[in-house]
Structures are given as C-alpha cells and as structure tokens.
Design a protein around this nucleic acid. Structure first.
Length: 479
RNA sequence: GGAUAGAUAGCUCAACGGCAGAGCAAUGCCCUGUUAAGGCAUAGGUUGAAAGUUCGAAUCUUUCUUUAUCCGCCA
C-alpha cells in the first residue's frame, strides 16, 4: 500500500494541519540528528521531517544519510521552526534504501559542476537544477501536444528507420544487421544490401518531414514529435546526435500562415511552462543570476530569465527578409569596424556571428528571417517569383541561434522535379513523395523545431547536454 | 573536422622551478529546534599517461589521452 502516501508538493501547499500523513522520498540533508529535508521530485522544495530525540536508535540515525530513501508516517503540523510553514512530526521512520555516504557521488553541499553531474547523469535528476530542468522539459512536451491537439492536428508517428537518404538534412547513422567482418559483396565489389535485413540500405531518420507531408495531404494538419538522429561530428553546446524534433505540416498554408503558427506555438508552450512551473523557473532564474555574477559586467544578460520569457511573450517576433538582414549587417557598425570574421554579401549563408548580431544586438528579440537564396536551401522549398529566393523561414532566438527552420513547400511538380535534378536528388527514389504533387496537390507549409533548443531557451541552461536525460554526442553514449 | 583553454584529495579550487595545501564531503566524538546546522579531532595524493630538460618538475618541452568553450555542419 505505497499509494496511500501524499506527495510533497501537495503536503507543502496543504491548507489543513493535524492529520496523519505518509510521506516517502530521498534524504537531501539531515541536520542536528533531528531534521530531515526530504524530497520526492514532485517539487524542488523539501518537506522537513522531525525525528524527535529518542524516536530512533543510534544505529538507525546513522543510516539517515543524503540519498537514502525513507517512508515516514507522522502528523503534519505547523512548523515550530522558522524556515518552513509545515513539517511532519514523525511517529515512525522506515529506511527503504540505504545510501553509503562514502560511495554516494552526489554530496550536494560540494557544489558539483554541471560537467561533473553530466558524468553522473543517472543520479543528477536528484539535484535541484536538474529536477527543475526536467520538470520544465516535461511541461513543454505536454504543452506541445496540447497546443496541436486543441487545434485539431493529428499526431503522426513517422518512421525512425528510413530507406531514403535523399533528404539532405545531414549525415545519417546506418542501420544494418550485416556482419562487419564479412559483408556480402556484389560483383563490382560494393556492399550488397539486398542481403541486409530490409533488403536495402537503411538509416535512422534525420527528419520526418517528407512523410509528414504525406499525412498533411490527407488530414490537413499533422505534427510529429519524436527522436531524430544526425551523425555529424558536431562539438557545440547546441548539437546532439540524438534529439527530439517537432515537425508540424499544414495543408492550405502559405509562408505567412506558417510564420504565424510558429510564433503562436512558441509563445503558447512558453506560457504553459511559466504557468505550470513557476517555482522551477524561478529557481532556474536565480541559478542563472548567481552564475552570471561570476562573469564580467559586459558578458551578463540584460534581463533575468523570467523577464526574458515575459518579453518574448509580450512582443511580436521581428520579421525580416534575408535581403533586409544582409542590408542591416552591411550597415552595421560591427561590419564597418570589420568585427565579423566572415564577410557579408547577398548570397552567403548567414554565419552564427551574423545571426547573433541581428538577434542579440540589433533587434534584441526573436527574429524570423524569410526569403533565403534558393542556392543555400533544400530542394523542397517553394521557389519565389523572383527566381532567386525560396519561401523559407528560420526563427532565430537570443542565445540559442536557429530554433526553427521551415518553409512553404514546392507544390508544383515541374518546378520541384527541375530543382531536384539541379541539386542531384534522385527523383526516382522519391517517387512516392512526388505523388503528393500528382494527386491533388495543394499549397502547404511546415517547420521543424528543435525541442532541446526550446528547453535551453526556457530554462536558461547553456549546454544542450544538460536538458536531455542522457545526451548522445560524438564519443559519448553512456547509460 | 578546425581553433583555444584546461586536467592537482571524493567535490570545488590554491600552490607557477625548491617540503603538495584549503574549504566542503567522509570517518570518530561532542552539542541538540536545526535551515548548505555547529564544535573538536582523524584520515585522505604515483599532481590525466609516457618520455625529456634540470642538482631539483604539479610548475618548462614533446607526444598521447581526455574535458570544456568557440567556429563549421544544423534543429
């Protein structure tokens, strides 16, 4: 009968005292041989359990150590001490699981670094910071489904294993059951994938978009929310080899509708997290402020985390074209003083330093850039009438960079095929995709949002490896 | 993949060519309404690895391993 317990979050907000309660959790600290700070992950706040002198024998007292798990039965009373409103006056304390203090790697008074905790990722959920991060992550994920569900979108599960390597979204992880030491070969010496599990070469998905478009051509509006894999050797604070991406795809949408939806969506999930995880976000804001005190004045953020999120909610995103962005950069003091490492001219792919200038220095808010040169964008993006640009949109966020990449899709069969040939995309391999342009094609659009980048933005964390439970990055696949 | 900066006690750091130290954690004892509880004491090290320079190396050089940050690729 473990479910007769009350969660600590509920106990702490209890209007009533005097009743007997059962509480279970892990010891955060044990002060004065009497006061146990107990946490069960329902909130960052601990309940104080009071074990009056004489209640427990010496052998049991020694086993109440940080990390140990307890079952406590006692009376919820108004606290006799100052630091908390209520506390549990214990009648009985049962140790469910011991925790050897000599071996337990989390001694929280030691202020372990985020890098250290990354190596102890299996235990770091028990810290205040990661407790808050992962409750906020949950809240954002829940809000994603609520947002789309409320709008009548169908949640489509696109495949994880794919046979198309034509999407061009990045390096792929191969999926195979062929033996490495004696791979079957064809007469010309190349690997014979006809012998492989699926009878052809297969990989982990880099995007569910193409399959998503098929769904949109029937349900009107779909979204995917699942894991995505990129085998790029990227070593940055904003790339993972395995990450979660949200990809809505909407029929009867143009690029303008697409932008409106993306902006509404981002604001909705942030608002949801603020409303449901105020404590956690306040804790993360304080953590960020404390961390920034170590930095020199000019490197500190202008706003606190909460102010930053409120600002994003209360102001429209800036919308500019790629051409305007290039003009702003060319006119900028940074450009004139030759502060940019990479040169600026119409046609370049905007570098991180350029995006950061636009977002963090010039506009100081999220920016949606549209109308990129077609040469630097994917084959499926709709060509504009100018013959030079496509109906692409990227949303750039302060501190994160590109958080959304999307476009209106090219629904005109001839234009699409022509572009595919120009970019050496094998048209025959994507025949199933082209069918959507043959049988009742409609204008449609969609975008991809990197979920972990969103979590970074809302939590104020700075390394993407700290907002996913078990990060997969080059040379690292622990747990 | 490229560049830069790191690796010293369980954790966070100091020592910058001359005996390797502090705070916290741990262990033992004391105190008992504490709030990262407090007090006294104890223990804890092949300074990431290997080679070299030197009378002497944590400190200087080389190679390797590994971590972080930035850039590229992108979400």
């Amino acid at each position: 009968m473990f479910n007769s317990r009350t969660k600590i979050k509920a106990l702490l907000s209890s209007e009533q005292t005097g009743q007997e309660v059962t509480v279970m959790g892990w010891v955060r600290s044990f002060r004065n041989n009497q006061f146990i700070a107990l946490n069960d992950g329902s909130t960052n706040n601990n309940i104080q359990v009071v074990a009056e002198l004489g209640l427990l024998d010496d052998a049991t007292l020694k086993r109440i150590t940080p990390g140990a798990s307890l079952k406590v039965v006692g009376q919820l009373i108004e606290s006799l001490g100052k630091g908390q409103k209520v506390e549990v006056k214990a009648k009985n304390i049962e140790i469910l699981g011991d925790c050897d203090p000599e071996k337990y790697p989390l001694q929280l008074k030691n202020r372990p670094t985020l890098e250290y905790l990354r190596e102890k990722a299996h235990l770091r959920f028990r810290t205040n910071t990661f407790g808050a991060v992962f409750r906020v992550r949950h809240s954002l994920a829940f809000a994603v489904h609520k947002f789309f569900n409320d709008k009548g979108f169908v949640y489509l599960h696109t495949p994880i294993i794919t046979s198309s390597d034509a999407e061009g979204a990045g390096e792929m992880f191969r999926v195979t059951t062929l033996p490495f030491d004696k791979t079957p070969r064809k007469e010309d010496g190349t690997v014979d994938f006809a012998e492989d599990f699926f009878g052809k070469s297969t990989n982990l998905t880099v995007s569910g978009q193409l399959e998503g478009e098929l769904g949109a051509m029937a349900f009107s509006d779909i979204y995917t929310f699942g894991p995505t894999f990129r085998a790029e050797n990227s070593n940055t604070t904003r790339h993972l080899a395995e990450f979660w991406m949200i990809e809505p795809e909407m029929a009867f949408y143009d690029i303008e509708d697409n932008m409106n939806l993306a902006e509404e969506f981002i604001k909705y999930i942030i608002k949801h997290a603020i409303e449901h995880n105020a404590d956690d976000i306040a804790f993360l804001a304080q953590r960020l402020a404390d961390e920034e005190k170590q930095l020199p004045q000019d490197k500190r953020s202008e706003f606190g985390l909460v102010e930053k999120l409120e600002f994003v909610l209360n102001n429209p995103f800036e919308r500019i074209t790629y051409t305007e962005a290039v003009d702003i950069l060319l006119q900028s003091p940074a450009y004139k003083k030759k502060k940019f490492e990479y040169d600026v001219s119409w046609g370049i792919d905007l570098q991180s330093e350029h995006e950061r200038y636009l977002v963090e220095k010039h506009f100081k808010k999220p920016v949606i850039v549209t109308g990129y040169p077609k040469a630097i964008k994917a084959f499926y993006m709709r060509q504009n009438d100018d013959g030079k640009t496509v109906a692409a949109m990227d949303i750039l966020a302060p501190g994160i960079g590109e958080i959304v990449g999307g476009s209106q899709r090219e629904e005109r069969l001839e234009k699409l095929e022509e572009r595919m040939r120009e970019m050496h995309i094998p048209v025959e391999d994507l025949d199933w995709y082209l069918d959507t342009r043959r049988f009742g094609a409609v204008p449609h659009a969609g975008f991809g949002l990197g979920f972990e980048r969103m979590v970074l933005f809302v939590t104020g964390m700075t390394n993407i490896r700290d907002v996913i439970a078990f990060a997969r990055t080059p040379n690292n696949c622990e747990f």
